[in-house]
Every structure is written in structure tokens, then in C-alpha cells.
Computed example of a mutant assay.
Amino acid sequence: YKRQGLMRASVYGGYFTAAQGIIYLSLMGMLLDDTMQRLNAVKNVLAAVVNSVAALFFLFVADFDWTAVVLIAVGSAIGGQIGAKVGRRLSPGFLRALIVVVGTAAIVQLVLR
């Protein structure tokens, strides 16, 4: 059951990417007994692997705009580095609350669109 949840989140994340980190953190937070900082680190590695595999797949089966690809790749790399550094410094309770707030804001924005 645990593996299926993470596998489904990875398939979703590989295609859409939207809220992928929030989904990983919420699943791992419910299923694993570890600190939020460690779960955040695992989330970053898991997202990098999933998105790399998805990128390789789409490289062979889809047409895309290389300018957009480069901009998204650079933004993701910078955001991942900043997020990891900031996440390590935050208390577990604050990090968990921040994840809930960002996830809720994303859901509200999608629903109201």
C-alpha cells in the first residue's frame, strides 16, 4: 500500500510536477516515522529522479520548446538548492505548517481559477 501511494505520486509528478513536493511530503509524513528535514531531503532526491526519468521519456516522444525547458531546468535547480538549505534550518513544526499553508494555497488557487 505504501509503495503504491508513492508510485502513483511519482507518475503524477513526472507528468504534471505541480505540487509534487507537497504530495511526497504529505505521503511520507503519514507513512514514515522520520524528521521533516530528512523527509524533505528524500523528497528532493525522489523528485529529481522522477523528473529526470520523465524528461528522458519526453525527450523521445514529445515536441517541446527548448527555451522553456532551459528556463524550467535552471529554475528547478536553483529552487531545489534554496529549498534544501532553508528547509534544514526550519524547525519541524514550522516546516510542517509551511507545507500545509503552501499546499492549501495551491488548492485554493486551482479551485478558484
Rank of each mutant, 00 (worst) to 15 (best):
V74C: 06
A97K: 04
N51A: 12
R89Q: 05
S10F: 06
D63K: 14
L112D: 07
Y15W: 15
A19H: 10
V69D: 11
M28E: 04
R3E: 01
L27K: 08
I82L: 12
V74N: 15
R96G: 09
V102Y: 12
G5C: 14
A97C: 01
Q81M: 08
D65K: 05
Q81D: 03
A77R: 08
A18C: 07
F64E: 08
V101C: 10
G21M: 01
V86F: 00
A84P: 07
L90H: 12
G80P: 06
L25H: 04
L112S: 15
F16M: 00
R8V: 15
F57V: 03
I23Q: 05
G5S: 09
N44R: 10
A106H: 00
G21C: 01
R8W: 15
L46W: 12
D33H: 15
D63W: 12
Y12V: 01
A105V: 13
R89N: 00
A105Y: 08
V101T: 13
G80V: 04
V108I: 10
A41H: 01
R89A: 02
P92G: 01
G14V: 09
G75W: 14
R3L: 06
G93P: 12
I72G: 14
L32C: 02
Y15V: 09
W66G: 06
G80E: 03
F58R: 02
V100C: 07
N44K: 12
L95I: 07
G80R: 06
N51C: 03
I23T: 10
Q81P: 00
V74W: 05
V108A: 04
A105D: 02
Y15K: 02
A84N: 07
Q4A: 10
G13H: 07
D33P: 03
Y15A: 10
I72T: 01
A9M: 07
A48M: 13
A54D: 06
S76D: 09
I72F: 13
T104M: 12
A84C: 05
V49T: 09
S10I: 14
I82R: 05
